[in-house]
């Protein structure tokens, strides 16, 4: 099976404290993968390393054979945990930034999704609700024809209807030759869109596998397995 992302003994320390430690992971192409773990387990650190926003303290991480850098940024579409739009900007300003920065940005697709959401390109960011901002950000990220999508907590902090919209948007934009990594601790909502799962805790991979294999072998959902593995 083709690999899109590979980590070998990857470690990241923040002023001496390990956020990731000897992290080993190999992710296949063409799958939707859930990166699941409790708060503070290292999910965001891992995603930021893959997005090239952090550099490893030790070990290696490669995406499609490249270390994170200019090359990988051209085919990775990253949704950060927080919104990074400036409040004075209009939706059209952000569309222009994406069109400028990314060759693979599909403007027609973005406009179509915004239209269906009833969001006008002339709206100012500061007039949008938190949920709407999250939707706009997801629309932008999913409008790129990327090889790898890194979605950090895409459904955190939004209502169930917005969650459904976000999952629908992910499903309908997914193509078989791309890979999507979704980090979250809201497993029930996301389980049915995942192929594979990775449990991480305290900066290390605890368990990984195929969602339907777990259900077939253990007769339980990933949500139930998570509660068992991470029982407090």
């Amino acid at each position: 099976m083709d690999t899109i992302l590979e980590c070998r003994n990857l470690s990241k320390y923040y002023t001496g404290l390990p956020a990731l430690y000897n992290f080993n992971l190999s992710l296949p192409k063409g799958k939707i993968i859930g990166l699941l773990g409790p708060n503070g387990s290292g999910k965001t650190t891992f995603i930021k390393l893959a997005a090239g926003l952090l550099t490893p303290t030790a070990g290696t991480l490669t995406i499609n054979g490249f270390a994170p850098g200019i090359e990988t940024k051209s085919f990775i579409s990253y949704l950060p945990e927080r919104s990074y739009f400036s409040s004075w900007m209009k939706v059209s300003d952000i569309l222009a930034v994406f069109a400028d920065f990314y060759k693979d940005f599909d403007m027609a697709r973005a406009l179509d999704m915004l239209k269906r959401l009833g969001i006008s390109a002339t709206s100012k960011i500061k007039t949008l609700s938190k949920g709407t901002k999250e939707k706009v950000q997801l629309v932008l990220v999913m409008s790129r024809r990327a090889k790898l999508y890194l979605l950090d907590e895409p459904i955190g902090g939004v209502d169930p209807a917005t969650r459904e919209y976000i999952l629908d948007t992910i499903i309908s934009n997914y193509s078989e030759d791309s890979t999507i990594i979704i980090s979250t601790h809201l497993i029930t909502d996301i389980e049915k869109v995942l192929d594979d799962f990775v449990f991480i805790n305290k900066g290390q991979v605890v368990m990984s596998g195929v969602v339907d294999d777990v259900r077939a072998e253990k007769g339980k959902s990933i949500d139930e397995l998570f509660r068992e593995v991470f029982k407090c």
Binding site: I171, K192, V193, D212
Partner: peptide, 14 residues
């Protein structure tokens, strides 16, 4: 497959 996956809200691979 794509339409049905969307209707069921599941992964197209599934």
């Amino acid at each position: 497959v794509r339409e049905l996956a969307f209707e069921a809200a599941v992964n197209p691979n599934t």
